[in-house]
Design a protein around this nucleic acid. Sequence first.
DNA 1: CGACACCTTGAAGAGGTTCAAGAAATGTGG
DNA 2: CCACATTTCTTGAACCTCTTCAAGGTGTCG
Lengths: 266, 266
Amino acid sequence: MLEVTPETLEQGRREPVASETKIHAMNSQALKVACSNCNLRELCMPMSLKAEDLEKIDTVVATRRKVKRGARLYTNGDKFTSLYAIRTGFFKTCITTEDGRSQVTGFQMAGEIIGLDGIVQEQHTCDAVALEDAEVCVMPFEQIEELSREVVALQRHVHKIMSREIVREHGVMLLLGSMRAEERLAAFLLNLVQRLHARGFSQSELLLRMTREEIGSYLGLKLETVSRTFSKFVEDGMVEVKQRHVRILDTDGLKLIVNNNAQSCQ
Amino acid sequence: MLEVTPETLEQGRREPVASETKIHAMNSQALKVACSNCNLRELCMPMSLKAEDLEKIDTVVATRRKVKRGARLYTNGDKFTSLYAIRTGFFKTCITTEDGRSQVTGFQMAGEIIGLDGIVQEQHTCDAVALEDAEVCVMPFEQIEELSREVVALQRHVHKIMSREIVREHGVMLLLGSMRAEERLAAFLLNLVQRLHARGFSQSELLLRMTREEIGSYLGLKLETVSRTFSKFVEDGMVEVKQRHVRILDTDGLKLIVNNNAQSCQ
DNA sequence: CGACACCTTGAAGAGGTTCAAGAAATGTGG
DNA sequence: CCACATTTCTTGAACCTCTTCAAGGTGTCG
């Protein structure tokens, strides 16, 4: 049986970009591309751009790069040169310490920007691993900086992207600091499905790209706890789970789990 | 007995800025100031600035604002206008949700920049509360953006500040996601004392500006657990604790707690 | 000095982890 | 295309850490 991809789960509003796939087939790295006709534009670029500015940005986003499932886009310690806009595929970012700790800091999908961690020290402090075959737009940061001195909307956009990431992480801190296992997993599922929905996929069905262990790392739980919590949700009729294929039956119920149990938690 | 401030704990390399205190006494808001002769400059400004650029920056940092202990510099929902550089005092930032959850997302001290959370949505998403009487430099963000189009070093600096905050939050996620109570508190103390030391204070002595409950919120623990863990450290001869006054007796021991127990934790 | 906020400590209980075993899916090579 | 190895997932039982509830102590401020 074929793998059920989000594309097959729902028609969606994204075109499969079939023609491009052929064009790029012979050369997986370093390809001329253009934001100006990218169907993900509204996700990773400022909305209100003059045509001429958009053309300038095309010169920044000069190349694409493919990343096979399991491969790393960048690794802790790599020299920082570029930000990356995810075109297709799904990533996790995670930090690991010398003493063997590790933590998944996020899961990223099409239209999201990764690499921001590298700016401070001019080298990356985490790993970005593709959880399925992926393609990213490479945006050399020096060029972003240069152009954003010229194009105010781009400057503003870069600032917003970084601020958004800071606010997102606040949310994760809230989750890790104050939620119990069920609340964490419910919040996780709702967040994932909401982001997928914004990309034209189903509101209720999703295919997890990550293992239980990776979910657990992100949520500060052991994989067994993640598995048990899924089972509990199934028992309670909130979701259907078949391995990595999840169908949400009771969105409101999940929301209630996240919100309602709150007064008891500091 | 007088409150023991970090200043009295060690001579430090910071001047008390005594003269200014008088000048500002009659008017607590909106005062002309200058980065060019601020003794915290190396903490919140790019190091290598031409004199002329520094003068330009002086025009951005036009005013200061005093915040009394317990008062808020900004609140969730406030319109975002400025970033703030802490001149004196100590802040906590925290998020609260409608359903009553809350999470301290950080503690900030002199030389650190707060307000970055407000950029995305042009309004703040968390509260910044002064934990002791404080003074901040107000930096209108529109002016920062304008000037950073001109002064490359400032642009780079703004990017680095935001990236640094992202990386810091990764560290907190690691702490919340993978550490046990002792490890969290040890990491917390080491981090605080290291930042204070960078500001000229003692390596081993510190005065906590926050309650056990606030520490607990930040570390994802209940206040009783924080208290008990302090007691355990005292028993083990790692620290002396007299209310909020902490003296670290065995820095390496604390480091060992943070690092050594790691292999058991995923 | 009394009210209030903050901190400490004990005992019982809940939630999550650990260890272990087995089932289900996936990938590999003949 | 099937057999086998590997990875991933599920479930149970015992254990441990942290929380909860409760009471009392300490410090601070009007």
